[in-house]
């Protein structure tokens, strides 16, 4: 816009620069700097790689890291497998009259705080919970079973919390898919698996990518669900960070863990974008 003066440019640019540099760039540089320092015997901060060395030497640290990464990938996959049929049903199978209503119904639970949703699952699944009450009443079991605090309940909770971020991009890309493409393939004799593999999935790949990126990132950084629904042994990497910061008060170690988590999430997102040939701005908007 030629008539827009320099003044308007600076008016918009200054707050944006302040935001990005003061709240994003500098804090992350500081995170890295602090992760490269340790306190020596005199109480001074000195440069060192000890924090990273501790990560690779202590089995529990890197095991938790690998576990968290693998479970986050598993959660992303499961979220896609569970929500894709629903997204397809709403956009392509259900009568158009109802599809708006069912889409909205899908969104409602996610307006409610994650903590409330997790709490609901805790009431349902725990030893004295609602499921056990019904199973006992029906005489299917004699003693209550603990269904909470294991890896399965944790993954289920993670899938439940992140479904929305997968289903919304899936629905919007499926809405763009012209039905006549599927009809043409059907008329030419393609079977259902072929139609899905050759037409539907390739068409909605951008939607799958953006959904997967957000779900993966949110799962990796989740603290509440693994903490409240996972067992004593299902430690999540964010819990390690929390322990270093709040319990052990070893901020340097915590910063190193935080930086490693940042590297992991950046790497996997980059890989996802590369494999599907997308860029970040397209995937997010």
């Amino acid at each position: 816009m030629p008539y827009a003066g320099r003044l308007t440019l600076y008016f918009f640019l200054t707050p944006v620069l302040l935001w990005l540099f003061l709240l994003i760039v500098i804090p992350h540089i500081d995170l890295f700097v602090i992760s490269m320092q340790v306190e020596n015997d005199d109480g001074d901060m000195v440069w060192s790689l000890l924090n990273y060395q501790a990560f690779f030497e202590e089995k529990i640290y890197w095991m938790t890291f690998v576990r968290t990464a693998l479970y986050a990938i598993l959660t992303t996959l499961l979220t896609f497998i569970i929500t894709f049929p629903v997204a397809f049903y709403i956009t392509k199978v259900l009568s158009i009259k109802y599809s708006g209503f069912f889409t909205i119904l899908l969104l409602v639970p996610f307006w409610v705080s994650e903590l409330v949703r997790i709490y609901g699952w805790m009431i349902l699944l725990r030893e004295s919970g609602v499921f056990n009450h019904f199973l006992l009443q029906l005489g299917l079991i004699d003693v209550p079973i603990e269904m909470l605090y294991n890896d399965i309940s944790m993954v289920m909770g993670l899938v439940y919390t992140s479904m929305l971020f997968m289903v919304v991009p899936l629905i919007s890309s499926l809405e763009g898919l012209d039905d006549s493409l599927i009809e043409a393939a059907y008329d030419l004799g393609a079977s259902k698996p072929v139609i899905f593999a050759k037409i539907v999935i390739p068409y909605i790949l951008p939607g799958i990518t953006s959904g997967s990126i957000v779900v993966f990132m949110l799962t990796l950084g989740n603290y509440l669900t693994p903490n409240l629904m996972g067992g004593k042994n299902s430690l999540w990497f964010t819990e390690q960070i929390y322990n270093e910061f709040i319990a052990s008060f070893n901020w340097n170690q915590g910063a190193a863990f935080g930086f490693l988590l940042l590297v992991l999430s950046t790497f996997i997102i980059w890989l996802g974008l590369k494999l599907t040939r997308q860029n970040l701005s397209r995937a997010l908007s």
């Binding site: 804090p27 950084g221 910063a255 988590l261 940042l262 970040l280």
Partner: peptide, 15 residues
């Protein structure tokens, strides 16, 4: 939007 919230929290705390 792609930085885990925990990391935003700790890096702003540290800075």
């Amino acid at each position: 939007l792609v930085i885990p919230g925990v990391i935003l929290g700790i890096s702003i705390l540290l800075a």
